[in-house]
Simulated scan of single mutants.
Amino acid sequence: MRTTGDRIRQAVSFEVVGLLISAPLAAFVFGYSLEKTGVLGLIGATLATTWNYLFNLGFDHALKRLTGSTHKSVKLRLLHAVCFEAGLLIVFLPIIAWWMEIKLIDALLLDVSFSLFYLVYAFVFTWCYDTLFPDPDSTPPPAH
Rank of each mutant, 00 (worst) to 15 (best):
H144D: 10
S73Q: 00
W99S: 05
L19I: 11
L42C: 08
G68I: 01
Y32Q: 06
D6H: 10
F59E: 10
I8V: 15
C128F: 14
K36N: 11
V17P: 06
R65E: 01
S115D: 07
F55M: 12
I95G: 03
W98M: 12
A62D: 03
R7P: 04
D6C: 02
F14D: 08
V74W: 08
Y121S: 00
T4F: 14
H80W: 02
L78V: 13
D60L: 01
A107S: 11
Q10M: 06
V17G: 11
M1L: 11
T70A: 02
G31T: 05
I43N: 09
S22A: 12
I105Y: 14
D6F: 03
K64G: 04
W51G: 00
A62T: 01
R65A: 09
D137W: 01
P24Q: 07
L110F: 01
F28K: 07
R7N: 12
F92E: 01
T139M: 10
L104D: 12
L34I: 13
T46E: 04
A27R: 01
P136M: 02
K36T: 09
T70F: 07
D130K: 02
G68D: 00
D60H: 03
G5S: 13
A48V: 01
Q10G: 03
W98K: 13
I95C: 06
W99P: 05
S138G: 07
P142Y: 12
L109E: 13
L66E: 13
I43M: 15
P142I: 15
